[in-house]
Simulated scan of single mutants.
Amino acid sequence: MSRPRVVLLHGLWMHAPAMHWFASRLRGHGFDVAPIGYFSVLESTTSAVSRIMRALDERPGTHLVGHSLGGLLALQAATRSQPGRVVCLGSPLAGSRAADGVASRVPAGRSLIGQHHELLFQGAGALPAGIEVGMIAGTLPRGLGGVIARLPGPHDGTVAVEETRVPGLAGHVVVEASHSGLIFCREAADHAACFLRAGRFEETAALTAIA
């Protein structure tokens, strides 16, 4: 019996190897995991989404897990293709105040945000119909984004928890992790595995990975 396939997508200013630990954790849960890289600053949203869609077309029903910008790109691909379930890690589905702050207050900030600035500013919009989408948000406020943008309420240093909430989510959980720390958080990985299997999160302690 084939293992369920998961495509992993990194966030802004990262590359595919950044998802290595998270991939290993999901493999421990029995998934066939394939991190996909894209040029998070130089590549257009259209080009990156097309890259994801090709991976989905190769194996229908493939799940998507995206960190930050990667989650937004995953949802863009899901509106045009037919993935399994989608898990977002700290993705600003309601738009990113931090990205807006960098672009408007930091010298050459718009160049630092790159080709995906519009997607980051606007967020996901309506979630794709018929696709179960889960969100894992962080609450450890370590990061310059929180200083630049003065994020409201709980946040992970880059994205506020309220920025991760939009209508239509099948599940939403929070973990004690910073924005970059989400991809190294055991609880986040275990929650993701749970959602990929069942379309819902366990609200209790992290699950134990299969050895």
Score class of each variant (00 low, 15 high):
residue 101 G to C: 06
residue 86 V to W: 06
residue 65 V to F: 10
residue 64 L to W: 05
residue 187 E to V: 02
residue 144 L to C: 11
residue 195 F to C: 03
residue 195 F to S: 09
residue 30 G to P: 09
residue 116 H to W: 08
residue 38 Y to Q: 00
residue 162 E to M: 12
residue 24 S to V: 02
residue 210 I to V: 12
residue 30 G to A: 11
residue 114 G to K: 10
residue 6 V to R: 14
residue 195 F to W: 06
residue 197 R to C: 11
residue 72 L to T: 08
residue 87 V to N: 12
residue 183 I to Q: 05
residue 119 L to H: 11
residue 17 P to G: 10
residue 66 G to P: 06
residue 102 V to G: 03
residue 166 V to N: 07
residue 64 L to S: 04
residue 94 A to V: 05
residue 170 A to D: 04
residue 70 G to M: 04
residue 128 P to D: 04
residue 10 H to T: 04
residue 119 L to I: 07
residue 180 S to C: 00
residue 78 A to K: 10
residue 153 G to H: 12
residue 126 A to N: 13
residue 75 L to I: 05
residue 200 R to Q: 14
residue 73 L to P: 07
residue 191 H to K: 15
residue 169 L to I: 08
residue 39 F to M: 00
residue 56 L to G: 03
residue 172 H to N: 10
residue 167 P to M: 10
residue 90 G to E: 00
residue 32 D to T: 00
residue 208 T to Q: 10
residue 128 P to Y: 11
residue 75 L to R: 13
residue 91 S to Q: 09
residue 115 Q to F: 02
residue 67 H to C: 09
residue 71 G to Y: 04
residue 59 R to N: 13
residue 56 L to C: 02
residue 62 T to Q: 08
residue 209 A to N: 07
residue 48 A to M: 01
residue 1 M to W: 01
residue 140 L to W: 05
residue 104 S to M: 09
residue 105 R to S: 15
residue 154 P to S: 13
residue 32 D to F: 02
residue 10 H to N: 03
residue 23 A to M: 01
residue 109 G to R: 12
residue 70 G to H: 00
residue 64 L to Q: 05
residue 54 R to P: 00
residue 142 R to F: 14
residue 82 Q to R: 15
residue 186 R to Y: 13
residue 106 V to S: 09
residue 187 E to P: 02
residue 62 T to L: 02
residue 190 D to I: 00
residue 111 S to A: 15
residue 121 F to S: 14
residue 100 D to I: 07
residue 83 P to V: 10
residue 74 A to I: 06
residue 174 V to S: 14
residue 60 P to Y: 07
residue 167 P to D: 15
residue 61 G to A: 03
residue 189 A to Q: 03
residue 172 H to C: 04
residue 140 L to F: 05
residue 89 L to R: 11
residue 29 H to Q: 12
residue 7 V to M: 07
residue 149 A to T: 03
residue 197 R to K: 15
residue 102 V to S: 01
residue 74 A to S: 15
residue 112 L to T: 03
residue 46 T to I: 02
residue 38 Y to I: 00
residue 73 L to F: 07
residue 85 R to V: 00
residue 152 P to L: 06
residue 165 R to I: 14
residue 7 V to L: 14
residue 60 P to H: 05
residue 188 A to Y: 13
residue 183 I to G: 01
residue 12 L to Y: 05
residue 60 P to F: 04
residue 160 A to D: 03
residue 30 G to K: 11
residue 133 V to H: 12
residue 155 H to F: 05
residue 118 E to C: 04
residue 95 G to T: 06
residue 92 P to V: 04
residue 4 P to V: 02
residue 58 E to P: 00
residue 94 A to P: 09
residue 191 H to C: 12
residue 5 R to N: 10
residue 64 L to C: 03
residue 153 G to P: 08
residue 164 T to A: 14
residue 113 I to Y: 10
residue 22 F to A: 03
residue 196 L to R: 10
residue 97 R to Q: 13
residue 94 A to E: 04
residue 166 V to H: 12
residue 200 R to T: 11
residue 20 H to V: 01
residue 182 L to N: 09
residue 97 R to H: 14
residue 47 S to P: 01
residue 13 W to F: 15
residue 61 G to K: 10
residue 117 H to N: 04
residue 210 I to P: 05
residue 31 F to C: 02
residue 178 S to N: 05
